[in-house]
Every structure is written in C-alpha cells, then in structure tokens.
Amino acid sequence: MFNTLTGLLGRRIDDAQIISFIETNGFKYPKKITISNRSADTSYWVENKKLGFDLLFNINTYLKDYPPVPGDKKGVFIPLLSHVRFHNNKSKTTFPQGIDFTHDFDTLQAKLGAPTLKSSDITPIWLNDDGSESFYRWEVPLVPEKSIVWGVQYGDDLAVTNITLELQYSMPVFKLYYEYLYGTFDTFLKSKSHYITSDLMFLRWAIERDLVKTDAVTAPVVRDIKEGKSPVTEWIRVLDRGYIQEEDFATDRDFVHAYIKNLSGHDVLYGRDFAFTLLTDPQEKENYFGEAATKSLNEIAFNEENYAKIKALLDMRLAEYREHRFSKSKKEVS
C-alpha cells in the first residue's frame, strides 16, 4: 500500500491510476473534482474511515515541479494528490523502517533520530500548560528528486498520532502573487498595495543583511541588489515563483517565521510595526486595518527615506529577537 501510494503522489485526481485506486479501495470519488480559484479552499480530503487513512488533493503545493493544473474552464483547477494521512493501521500497511502506531517516543527516536520538529519550534504558545511539548514530528526524505517525504507525529497523549506520506510542504512566508489566480511576475510588478511595499522592503533588508540563500543563478542578482544596481524585484524574477519560503533564508529563519507570522508568543509582528513606523496620524495607527489607514498605507512609496525607517526597525527587531526572542520587546513601536 505504501509503495503504491508513493507512486500516486503528485498525480491529478482524474488520473486513471488515482481513479482506479479510489474505486478499488472503497473511497468515494468526489462528484465535483475541480476547485474554483474563487473558493476559499484550495484543497479537499477524500476519506476512508474503514482503512484508517485519508487522501488530500490540492491545487497549490508551493512546489515548482507541481504547479496548479488548469481545468477545462477559466478559473477552475484540477487538484493533485499531495498528502496521505494514516490515523491508524487498519489497512495493515507496512511503513518504512518498521515504524508502527504502537511505538513509544524512545523507539521512534532510536529508529529515526531526534525529531525534525517540535511544537515550540512553530510557536511557544503551542506548549502545554506544564511547559511540555504538545507534539513531536519526524520528516524523512523518501524520493528527494520528486519532493516526496514521509513522517510521524507523536502527541502529548504519548502515542503516535499519525503517519504521513506527502509532497514536501512548506507554507510560504511571503505570498507575492498566485498562479492559480493567474498571477505572474509582470502582474506583480503592476500591483500596488502596502502589503507588497512592506514585503519588498523586508526582502531588500534581508538581502542586504545576508539573510537569504544564494546559488550560481541568484548570487549575481543579490550582489547587484546590495550594490544598488538592481531593485529587489529582480531577485523575485530570478526565483521565478510568487512565494518566498523559510528555506529561502540562510540564517535567522526562526526570526523571519516568528516576526512575519506573529508566532513568538509575545504579539510582535511586522505588519503592525510597518504601519506604526510609517503612518503619521495617531487615529490611523489606532485602527491600522481601517479604511483610512489602508488608504494612507497604500500611498506610501518605496523610496530611500521610507526604506531607511523600515531598515532601522528591522535591525532593532532582529537584535531583540536574537537577544531575548521578543520577551522584553515593546508590542508597538513609536
């Protein structure tokens, strides 16, 4: 079963092999297989309680080798099998390295090494009241060239919660444009909003502070950006995708993760800092998501004067995070 499912990952839900697997194993094939780009959901589960595992079909994998697949109508996409989650082993599946739902933490660690991730790595607020971790996860490469991994989650009930097989997933830190909304680099360049301005300022700062990864293709572009010869958008053009992931950062990923997504546990976040740094009206600061503040923020230019203010802000917040992970930081900047 495990090997069969490995071969199905990344295939469209209307693929003949997917259809055959669903029908043969008692899953219910969806009446409507496509997903509209107007929908709030970009994925859906196909469940099988009898076998104890579910299949997730997704139109947005955030992997370049598995882009959104257009359907036969504009705005409609065909999802791919991106994730298999085993809740138990009613299917009598043989898992890699003999892993089983009966394993305790020590057995998992002996077989798989130290956990890849624990709850507090995502955010301290996910710790239990007694300070213990609420879960541990292991992620193990299976078919690296196809971005396929498998993994185990061990919960605070001292048992294996689930075993997974999936296309490696990393939620973007920055979403600049969406392919399933027909976004491209060119449409991104024409877009105007304070979200884009704040993202670009952060990314330029990250490049200037040597926080981003480089390779043979991106290194010359990064050098030109640091020397003021190219705009930060040139880095995005070379990456050839509308999202930036934690893996795109070479250092201080935990800072980027916590600050952008407000996951430090101390309510310190970049979006609010950006608004409070550049807004001048106290009432707009008080309601920086409001219509008046949004209008003012959208009019803020990405110029050297404004960037200097944000650069100073980011230098300060990085220093604070490195020293005390925002535990002593002020929630709002003046």
Rank of each mutant, 00 (worst) to 15 (best):
A206K: 04
E23L: 00
G151P: 10
L165R: 05
Y154Q: 03
A293C: 07
R38L: 14
T251K: 11
T164D: 08
T161W: 03
H83L: 08
F101N: 02
R209D: 09
T214E: 15
L269R: 12
Y66H: 05
V46Y: 04
V140P: 11
A301W: 08
D41C: 02
I236G: 01
T280H: 11
S120T: 13
S170P: 00
D65K: 14
D41V: 05
V84W: 01
G265I: 09
S264A: 14
V268M: 04
D156W: 04
W205T: 04
T161A: 08
W126T: 01
K175S: 11
T233D: 10
V69C: 11
W138Y: 08
T24V: 01
T161C: 03
A250Y: 12
S230C: 06
G71H: 12
H103P: 00
K331E: 14
E299N: 13
P96W: 01
H194I: 02
I19S: 09
V69G: 09
K118Y: 00
M316T: 15
E23F: 03
D157Q: 10
Y288R: 07
T214Y: 12
H194R: 07
T294C: 05
L318Y: 07
R317F: 03
F185P: 04
K146H: 09
Y154D: 04
I310H: 02
K330V: 06
V149E: 13
V232L: 11
L318K: 07
